[in-house]
Design a binder for these strands. Structure first.
Length: 560
RNA sequence: UGGGGCGUGGCCAAGUGGUAAGGCAUCGGGUUUUGAUCCCGUGUACCGCAGGUUCGAAUCCUGCCGCCCCAGCCA
């Protein structure tokens, strides 16, 4: 793939900081809150944060932003680590938690308080909200705003000591209740929460708020560039205010970029959760989910995801990227790396009437037409085969290059056959084709160089490996389900179809994580959860591009 | 009606005063024992709109319009 280094505005800033000597090494961080699974949107943040460090010889922290105990779980920590690692990034020993810094954070809070820049407010949450004002009206000072420093210190210490109940007091920064930026209207720094923390246990009953904890954690980790999404733009003045007041040795800089939104997908944690809870999908790793776990189980290669993010770019513009971009990345990677195999999704029996009774030939078949180093495999061929139902049409349009009555077609890696007779059941459905093969046309060794227009795939009936294949499609019917009034109302009812299929026998050896191309159909992989030797289960990763689909529609339309 | 952002072809995106890269998609064509891949070709982009500065503007200035974000003791 093309490896020209992207030069988005963030990388421009970073390179400039390196050139001017402002920094000698870049330090970034990917700071998820362990309260859910990572999704495609996070892939961008991960690639950006780890990417810029990697490109410049810097380093990146994987920091769990765990300042809200009760909503965070160890299960998510493990999943996040697995996902980041799977994407191809490594944090070495730089795995941290915001909770690792609770002591230091507390000291910073006391410092602020001592300097008269923070105070303990005893208003209720509702009262604080009322005092905050609105978007267009200034807020009002809390009656506790001018509490003496000593009282604030005493109260804050007692908050920490557990003398108060949840909500009784809160530590607030003393900034400006009239600021047009609501984040500067004396934001809360610490709240009381008598909840055991997954890491610190019962040591604390007060926990720092995001803005405070994140800013100072960045400083403590000596982060040089704190990259986050656009919605935190309004928080930057607070970020900078904290750094201005506390003057840590290292001053990080926050830079915001726009989220990556994928068409026909949803990334809201709440909505994703609803899909799981309502059983719309089988779980967080359902192959239709935009979670990293889902994408992985679907069979999307990590490298393709990285490429996708790269193509999307880093900007500040709201974007909704077409699914086609992602699919192109997937196909590009898989076309290069996936061995070819044959499988029939909708079997139609074909009997070769002139093929020697009981004969079986092993047909050498290329594993990759464009990469001879992939070698070949032997595929059993016999007088009874399955072909795809779609590859036969009784009343075919002119441009139908497949099998039709009295027509010829090439069996991939096999022979040219002619359809002599169509057998139907009582319902008039085609259930079997009687064909004759041309012995002179064996692939590779045939004495005839006769050409036919079409080539179709097949599987020998006696050797076929029955399996279940899940055919996935987009989860929603509209490009921007986030904008839908009710996202549950725009679910695609056909996002999953399962089929009983016939596979070429070599597919029995395919392992989890290995993707193959079922020729003419698409890319598939073994399902990491439901697959077993007795009950093989495959997932369709993505279809092949299908220009015939368009031609077919036109042809059908023309026939009226 | 406060503040902060953003607006370049269908979707992304380069471009940072000198006369609009590239990718994806689309539509043609070539090669092909995958209607795949690959290879060619394909868009008059009034650079949100209107003014202005300039020899010259997507790039600078002014005004307007549109979209997104913010009133958690969530992150």
């Amino acid at each position: 793939m093309n490896d020209a280094l992207p030069r988005d505005f963030i990388r421009q800033i970073i390179h400039s900081d390196l050139e001017t000597g402002k920094h000698t090494a870049i330090v970034t961080r990917f700071p998820p809150e362990p309260n859910g699974y990572l999704h495609i949107g996070h892939v961008m943040s991960i690639c950006l944060n780890f990417g810029v460090a990697e490109e410049t010889g810097g380093r990146t922290f994987l920091r769990f932003d765990d300042t809200n105990p009760g909503k965070e779980r160890e299960e998510y920590v493990e999943a996040i680590e697995r996902d980041v690692r799977w994407l191809g990034f490594d944090w070495d020993e730089r795995l941290t938690h915001t909770s690792d810094y609770f002591d230091a954070l507390y000291d910073y809070a006391e410092q602020l308080t001592r300097n008269g820049l923070a105070y303990v407010d005893s208003l209720s949450a509702d009262e604080i909200r009322a005092h905050r004002g609105t978007l267009t009206e200034a807020g009002k000072n809390s009656p506790y705003r001018d509490r003496p420093v000593e009282d604030n210190l005493d109260l804050f210490r007692r908050m920490r000591a557990g003398e108060f109940a949840d909500g009784e007091h809160v530590l607030r920064a003393k900034i400006d209740m009239a600021s047009p930026n609501i984040n500067l209207r004396d934001p809360a720094l610490y709240r009381i929460r008598h909840v055991a923390h997954q890491h610190t246990g019962d040591k604390w009953c007060i926990y720092p708020m995001y803005d405070f904890a994140h800013t100072m954690s960045d400083a403590l980790e000596q982060i040089t560039h704190s990259l986050c999404t656009l919605e935190f733009e309004d928080h930057r003045p607070l970020y900078d205010w904290l750094l201005d007041q506390l003057k840590p040795e290292h001053r990080p800089r926050q830079i915001e970029f726009s989220r990556l939104n994928l068409a026909y997908a949803i990334t809201s944690k709440r909505k994703l959760n609803a899909l799981v809870d309502d059983g719309v999908v089988s779980g967080w790793d359902d192959p239709r989910m935009p979670t990293i776990a889902g994408l992985r189980r679907r069979g999307y290669p990590a490298s393709a995801l990285r490429e996708f993010v790269k193509r999307g770019g880093v900007t500040k513009k709201d974007k909704l990227i077409e699914m086609a971009v992602l699919e192109n990345c997937i196909r590009e990677e898989l076309d290069f790396s996936a061995p070819r195999r044959m499988a029939v999704l909708q079997p139609l029996k074909v009997v070769l009437t002139n093929y020697p009774q009981g004969q079986v030939e092993m047909m050498p078949s290329s594993n990759h037409p464009n990469r001879p180093e992939f070698g070949t495999r032997e595929v059993p061929f016999s007088g009874e085969l399955f072909i795809e139902q779609d590859d036969f049409m009784e009343d075919a349009p002119k441009k139908f290059f497949r099998l039709k009555p009295d027509g010829e077609v090439r069996l991939r890696n096999g022979y040219i056959i002619r359809c002599d007779e169509v057998i139907k059941n009582k319902a008039g459905e085609v259930v079997e084709l009687r064909c004759s093969y041309d012995p002179d046309t064996r692939s590779g060794t045939g004495t005839s160089d006769r050409k036919v227009k079409g080539t179709i795939h097949w599987v020998s009936a006696a050797h076929a490996l029955p399996a279940e294949v899940r055919l996935y499609d987009r989860l929603f019917t509209v490009p921007d389900p986030n904008a839908a009034e009710d996202f549950m109302a725009v679910l695609n009812p056909d996002s999953l179809a399962t089929a009983r299929v016939m596979l070429e026998p070599s597919l029995a050896e395919l392992g989890v994580g290995e993707a193959v191309q079922f020729e003419r159909l698409g890319y598939f992989c073994v399902d990491s959860v439901d697959h077993s030797a007795k009950a093989p289960a495959f997932n369709r990763i993505v279809t092949l591009r299908d220009s015939w689909a368009k031609v077919e529609q036109q042809a059908i339309a023309q026939r009226g």
